[in-house]
Amino acid sequence: MPATPLDFSRIRAITLDLDDTLWPVWPTIARAEAQLQAWLAEHAPATVAWSAQPGVLRAIRDEVNRELADRAHDLSALRRESIRRAMERAGDDPALAGPAFEVFYAERQRVDLFDDALPALEYLSSRFPVVALSNGNADVQRVGLGRYFHAAVSAREVGAAKPDARIFHRGAQAAGVAASQVLHVGDDAHLDGVGALNAGMQVAWLNRTGLPWEHAPHAPHLTVAGLAALCERLRQERG
């Protein structure tokens, strides 16, 4: 049970996570990586051969994450640099990293929404300013959902990723309300839940798989199994 029940009367805006809240992210990433590999096979075959060695791609990612720790909030920059280093070490032209990343990025914007995502977006956006709040690099305009969002805030542009309070406060600012007037909705108990609570927001934890909450003394104001359940609770309270 939540320590403090959700105060529906305080809600003036919604901030909404994207990956694993509106769509499952890993099938999307897998398709994007497959597209990248197909492009590399045609344009940078030495990179494909080199990266087939066990452990080399993981080592590159770990190296980039370590050396660019100050850019951990920018997933696009980290992936682009990983591609560039792989090309360089394989003997391909590292200038191809830019076009290669764009192939990955374009496919990353093709998502398969959860069944309850569009009805929820239609309901929420008709009643509140809805602000996308994401650590990832999905673009709500390119995904095709831009009409539902008042604004979109990314970790890359803020320079800080969830659970840092700064990204939540930027989301509230984008909505034109105080943090205490925001209901944040997201699937990650730590990044979304604890982060938003520490930023002074109310939290609806989207728990599609029935996981236990393991972040006491923090507790979400509301836990729902899906976005449809969230909208139904809001309907009941608003009458």
Rank of each mutant, 00 (worst) to 15 (best):
M1A: 08
A3Y: 07
T4G: 00
P5N: 13
F8Y: 14
R10N: 07
R12F: 04
A13V: 14
A13C: 04
I14L: 05
I14C: 00
L16W: 11
L16R: 15
D19H: 03
L22T: 06
P24Y: 02
P24C: 06
W26H: 09
P27C: 13
P27E: 06
A30E: 13
A34E: 14
A34W: 09
A38Y: 12
A38W: 08
L40W: 01
L40E: 13
L40Y: 11
E42R: 12
H43E: 13
A49V: 10
Q53L: 12
P54F: 11
V56T: 13
A59G: 02
I60F: 00
I60C: 14
E63D: 12
V64C: 05
V64N: 04
N65M: 15
E67R: 08
L68S: 05
A69I: 08
A72G: 07
A72S: 03
A72I: 15
L75M: 07
A77R: 10
L78H: 03
L78I: 13
L78C: 04
R79H: 05
I83A: 03
A86S: 13
E88K: 12
R89N: 04
A90K: 09
G91S: 13
A95N: 10
A95C: 07
A97F: 13
P99H: 05
F101A: 11
E102S: 02
E102L: 12
Y105W: 14
Y105L: 06
R108K: 12
R108S: 02
R110S: 05
R110L: 04
L113I: 07
A117G: 01
L118C: 08
P119H: 10
L121E: 15
Y123V: 11
L124W: 01
V130A: 09
V130S: 10
V131D: 10
A132S: 02
S134L: 07
N135D: 13
N135T: 13
G136M: 03
D139Y: 11
R142T: 01
R142H: 09
V143F: 05
G144K: 08
A151G: 05
A152V: 09
A152C: 12
V153N: 10
V153F: 10
V153S: 05
V153C: 12
A155C: 03
E157Y: 01
G159F: 05
A161K: 08
A161T: 01
K162T: 03
K162S: 06
A165K: 10
I167N: 02
F168T: 09
H169A: 04
R170G: 04
Q173E: 15
Q173W: 14
A175F: 02
G176R: 11
A178E: 15
A179P: 09
Q181N: 15
L183Q: 11
H184K: 06
V185Q: 09
V185C: 06
H190I: 03
D192W: 11
D192V: 01
D192R: 09
A196R: 08
A196H: 06
L197Y: 00
N198K: 15
A199V: 09
W205F: 11
L206G: 10
L206F: 00
N207T: 14
T209A: 11
G210M: 13
P212I: 02
E214C: 11
L222H: 07
T223M: 06
A225M: 00
L227M: 03
E232Y: 06
E232T: 04
L234T: 01
L234V: 07
R238M: 05
G239Q: 05
